[in-house]
Every structure is written in structure tokens, then in C-alpha cells.
Nucleic acid binder design. Structure first.
Lengths: 110, 110
DNA sequence: TTCTATACCTTGCAATACAAGGTATTTTCT
DNA sequence: AGAAAATACCTTGTATTGCAAGGTATAGAA
């Protein structure tokens, strides 16, 4: 099993969290994710993902001049994006709890 | 983002962990996962997954009579399956660490 | 001018969770 | 005995998403 599969759906939430903290552009994200411990991501992953999130109105983008190279497309969170991030946090929390419960072989308590 | 996507690749590890603890049959798994807090899984998810894991020699299966209904196909872990489970635990640990780091906006320490 | 780094995007593929539908066995109910 | 219900397995087709590979364009440096 590759880490690739384990990231499905989780990367979305991580990127929302990063954008919330500070607006970023796509190219920057591929590097930024590394600073959080992830192996570096393909641009073929990042750009389509950002465009999808914009289509879903979770983020907005504005072009700004770069110091070196073409203009950067900076992304920031919409209100809907913040709500989505909060939803993700809850889901991630449940997932963590459940997986850890399975791995340590404990049954759910109520 | 649905939980469905967040499970990709993670379900494998969970099922390996459950099988290691005690041999189980497919139909039973769909119920067992609920007791760990997961919403119940489709059989269309479980059966292909078990067959794939058998093909990869992570598990073996034996048919046993049921008290009610057709014979059950019980799965148990191979040595390779145990190794895979250990790998999964490490990967899951890293994933947890990294995602939580992003969500709390901490940079990796070295 | 040419090279390099920056920055964006597209296409096609692989992996996997799931809905929907199908088959067979065993017990229970009428 | 026949019908119904629960148990148990499997298959097909679809949607989602991460990624490799390849493409385009801008700006500064050599």
C-alpha cells in the first residue's frame, strides 16, 4: 500500500488549513507541504486540486506579480472554505479515533 | 469531501489489524467495522478488497460450515500480511503526525 | 542571445470505495 | 412440502483523486 492512496481526500483538508493560515500560491504549496513532513507533491496533484476547490467556491484567487518569473495565483479561503475545513477537522478526528481503536483492538465505548 | 475518500488505503490496514487479532469472514467484517466506530461498509467494498489481499498473499482463506446459511470463508494473516500491517502502522503514524502538524500549524522539528 | 528558475496548466492512467444487482445455502414459518 | 427470510458470497460499472509526463510562458542572469 502506497502513501498515495492514504492521502486521498486528506490532502484537501491539509491545503485548506494551510491557506487559512496565510494565502499561498500553487507552486509554493508543493514546497510548503514538505515543511510539514510530507514528501513533496507533484504539481499535477496540486493545480487540479486548487482549481477544483475554486470551482466548489472553497477558495478564491488573485494574480500578483512575482519577483522572479510569471505572475502568481494566490489563493485564500472563502467562508464556505472555512466551514469545509471545520468539517474536515471533525471527520479527521473521527477517522483517527476509529483507526487507532482498530489498531489497538479496543471496542467503541458509549 | 466524503469520508469515503479519506478511507482510501486506510481500510486495508484496518482489516489486516482485525484479521490479525482473530480470523474473520467477509460478511462478519462489514459488521465488525461498525463496532470500531466506522459507519457500515458495503460488501462491494469488502469482498474485492479481501480477494485482492489474498492475491497479494497477505491473507489466506479456508471455508468452514456455518450454523445458518452457506459456508463462510475465513481469512487469516500470512507472514507477509503481518509485515504489511507493521508497515501500515508506521505510515499511519507519519500521516497522523503530519496532518496534525498542518492542522495546528507547526513546522517540522528536526 | 541563451540558459535557468519560476510558475502555471493539461492529458491520461491507476487505485479503490461503493451502489446495484446476482447466486446459493440453511433455517423457519405456514 | 413450499415459501420466505436471513446468511453469505461475488461481479459489474462508476466516481474520485493522486500522479507522471509533458507543455507553455515570464523574468532575471550568464
Amino acid at each position: 500500500m502506497s502513501t498515495t492512496q492514504m492521502l486521498k481526500g486528506i490532502l484537501d483538508g491539509c491545503i485548506l488549513a494551510i491557506i487559512k493560515n496565510k494565502e499561498v500560491y500553487g507552486y509554493e504549496l508543493t514546497e510548503k507541504l514538505e515543511s510539514y513532513g510530507f514528501h513533496s507533491f507533484s504539481e499535477g496533484t496540486i493545480y487540479p486540486l486548487l482549481m477544483r476547490m475554486q470551482k466548489e467556491e472553497l477558495v478564491t484567487s488573485t494574480l500578483k506579480k512575482s519577483t522572479a518569473g510569471p505572475r502568481r495565483k494566490y489563493y485564500s479561503l472563502t467562508k464556505k472554505g472555512e466551514e469545509e475545513l471545520n468539517k474536515f477537522k471533525l471527520q479527521w478526528d473521527h477517522l483517527q479515533t476509529n483507526v487507532n481503536r482498530v489498531l489497538s483492538n479496543e471496542v467503541e465505548e458509549n
